[in-house]
Design a protein around this nucleic acid. Sequence first.
DNA 1: ACAGGTTTTCGTCCCATAGTCTAAAACCTC
DNA 2: GAGGTTTTAGACTATGGGACGAAAACCTGT
Lengths: 182, 182
Amino acid sequence: MRVHGGRLEALLRRVGRLPGESLARALERAIEVGQLAHLEQLETRILRDGTLATVYLGFARPGTELTGDWRVVGTRTPPEERELVGAAQARLRAKLSYTNLGFALAPEVFTISELRELYVAALGHDVSATNLQRVLLRRGALERVDGHRAPGRTGGRPAALFRFASQRLEVTDEFAALRPPR
Amino acid sequence: MRVHGGRLEALLRRVGRLPGESLARALERAIEVGQLAHLEQLETRILRDGTLATVYLGFARPGTELTGDWRVVGTRTPPEERELVGAAQARLRAKLSYTNLGFALAPEVFTISELRELYVAALGHDVSATNLQRVLLRRGALERVDGHRAPGRTGGRPAALFRFASQRLEVTDEFAALRPPR
DNA sequence: ACAGGTTTTCGTCCCATAGTCTAAAACCTC
DNA sequence: GAGGTTTTAGACTATGGGACGAAAACCTGT
């Protein structure tokens, strides 16, 4: 998945097992990370045609060129695959809230406003730039980067630049509920 | 997994694919729910011997008789399997906090003190009965049941009885972080 | 019967985190 | 320099959960 043109976009790609190929080799080929910023396994199920399918969810940052025969999920995507995409979206939305998964959607360096637009696209609802910055900074997920981005045509204060402190998935919240006593 | 004798206990069972058996049939046989209160898929990986393994995590409530050749995870469990069990425990602990997964560990009806002991065993740290009750009640996960449990030998106020409102996994918390604005 | 101990239950206070709102800062164009 | 725009910072509020203590309801022993 990626955020493209202000919208969350799902891309699908099927990788089959070649005749005579070992399972391990086929799996390696299937999950070839390449330009994906993050990859995780979803579920394994048996498709209607009887084949065993292991589904992976990956994220591409804006600007990365995707090699391979990807196709964008649209209205003509079969229901079975749309269902998988729905599960992937739900997973993404949940993890955005309590992990640093944003790094997989964002470019190397960005302003808070740009990050906010990514979150809006991914979550499907409005997000306050103020809160986003405060929450992510307090968790230590974001770091300041030297320099500012020049304002656009219409003016405005130059935006500070940030980056994600870690490029690997990290759960930032141990869930307040039922936390161990001090 | 189950809570047995005040401790969280992991049980393992391997189900292979029989010669000539279809994939779908083997899967059905493997995940035969039987007496399990809840079952979810974990990951699929290729084991060292080259076979493809799909790992499931299930929960048995206290008192249920388990049929099948289960074995308790102990010090002699091979490292590869212990690793899987560790992941399963982490998942359990996380989900106990933000879902109603407790229903899968608890009997049909219970007192708050009994539920607290289950949580202590599963989480590995102390839990306040007061807060546990308040949190689960506010979420609507628990319901009062008529009647009280008679005090034990040493006396004490009779404990009220509760049950889980739903017997299916429900995420009770939309994660405070980045919640949509009102 | 009553004193003392036990367990459960309820209420209050406190703290941490996140949402809301407003103002200030820093830039643009006209 | 006036007015508009975007970003940034601060104060206030709401919510959810942890800590603590007291009351309720029961037991046993004298």
